[in-house]
């Protein structure tokens, strides 16, 4: 059986027919070629597949594409192209907070959501927010630094413009 679904992905209206068993991650990667959403475990344990569903970070490997019908999805490609994470990307780049890059998109999506909720998180809060995001390459410290630096910059920019 396939089902028709309709959803908004990165601001674009998408209509597709999918098998109910298809995960949102496979849907994004295989149907829409949005390969920035990665798969590292397919069971919610690595965070490589994080996307925003209705504005909140969720594991795209644990959501079925049919469940997302009628919803709004944003992936790293969308966030990047609309400039929402430019400063985070720059901070990750400056701090060399990625190596192979496979965890990076999930990290950035999660960091974006964190800073939306907690504009100036403490280091512990950053580590806590990343507690489900596995990175084999960096050892995490640079990622924490990059997020903390973005928060600091945003706060000081906000102060300057106030």
């Amino acid at each position: 059986m396939t089902m028709d679904i309709e959803l908004t992905v990165n601001g674009e209206q998408v209509r597709e027919s999918v098998e109910p068993r298809m995960s949102l991650a496979d849907f994004l990667r295989e149907r829409l070629q949005l390969t920035g959403t990665h798969l590292g475990c397919e069971m919610g344990a690595c965070g490589a597949c994080l996307v925003l569903l209705g504005g909140k970070p969720v594991h795209a490997c644990l959501v079925l594409a049919v469940q997302a019908s009628g919803e709004t999805v944003e992936t790293v490609e969308g966030l990047s192209e609309r400039g929402a994470i430019a400063d985070l990307q720059a901070a990750f780049h400056d701090r060399n907070a990625l190596q192979c890059g496979f965890c990076t998109t999930g990290m950035v999506v999660n960091a974006h959501a964190l800073l939306g909720e907690t504009p100036v998180p403490a280091r512990d809060e950053i580590r806590d927010a990343l507690s489900g995001n596995y990175c084999r390459c960096t050892g995490y410290e640079a990622i924490v630094d990059a997020i903390a630096e973005t928060a600091r910059k945003r706060a000081s920019d906000a102060e300057a413009s106030a």
């Binding site: 949005l34 390969t35 920035g36 959403t37 990665h38 992936t75 790293v76 490609e77 990047s80 192209e81 990307q89 990750f92 780049h93 990625l98 890059g101 496979f102 990076t104 998109t105 950035v108």
Partner: peptide
């Protein structure tokens, strides 16, 4: 990679 444009 930061833009989701890695090619694995």
């Amino acid at each position: 990679h930061l833009a989701g444009r890695g090619r694995f």
